[in-house]
Simulated scan of single mutants.
Amino acid sequence: MSTPQDPEPIPSLAELDAMDMAEIAAGRTSADKDLRTDDIGPPPRALQHAFVLWVGGAVAALISAAYGLINLGTISDALRGRLEEGIATDPRESAPATQVDSLSSTYPVIMLIAIVVLLAIQYPLLTAIARHHSRNCRSFYVTAVVLMLLCIPVGIDLLFDYPEVSPVMTVVAWVQFALLLLSALFTLRRSVNQWLPEPMRLRPGQMRSRRG
Rank of each mutant, 00 (worst) to 15 (best):
A130Y: 03
S104K: 02
E84H: 11
S94A: 13
L119D: 09
L83V: 13
R138C: 09
R82D: 15
M111L: 13
R92Q: 12
I121R: 14
H133S: 10
L119V: 13
C137D: 15
I121E: 15
I113C: 01
T106W: 04
G81S: 06
D101C: 00
A88N: 11
H133A: 08
S94N: 09
R131H: 05
I115R: 13
S134G: 06
H133W: 07
E85W: 13
H133E: 03
A120H: 07
I115W: 09
L103G: 03
S104D: 01
M111V: 07
P91G: 00
R135T: 04
G81T: 12
T98K: 09
I113L: 15
P108Y: 02
L119R: 01
G81A: 10
L112Q: 00
Q122T: 08
E84P: 03
S134I: 03
E93I: 04
L112A: 04
T127D: 04
T98Y: 04
E85R: 14
V100T: 15
N136K: 06
P124F: 03
L125P: 00
D77C: 03
I115G: 11
I121H: 09
A128R: 10
I129S: 04
Q99G: 01
M111H: 11
A95K: 09
Y107V: 12
P108T: 03
Q122L: 04
S139H: 07
E93V: 10
A88C: 03
A88F: 09
V116R: 09
Y123P: 02
T98W: 02
P96Y: 11
V116C: 11
S104T: 01
D101N: 06
V109F: 03
V116H: 06
I121L: 13
P96M: 04
G86Q: 14
R131K: 15
P124W: 06
R138T: 11
A95M: 07
A130N: 01
R135H: 01
G81I: 05
S134W: 00
D90M: 00
L125R: 09
E85C: 05
L126S: 06
E85S: 14
A128V: 10
A114T: 14
L103E: 04
Y123S: 11
H133F: 07
I121K: 10
L118K: 06
D90T: 07
V109M: 01
A128I: 05
L125V: 06
S105Y: 14
S134A: 04
A95E: 12
E84Q: 15
L118N: 15
L103V: 01
S102E: 10
A114H: 05
A130C: 13
A78K: 02
A120F: 00
L79S: 08
G81K: 08
R80G: 10
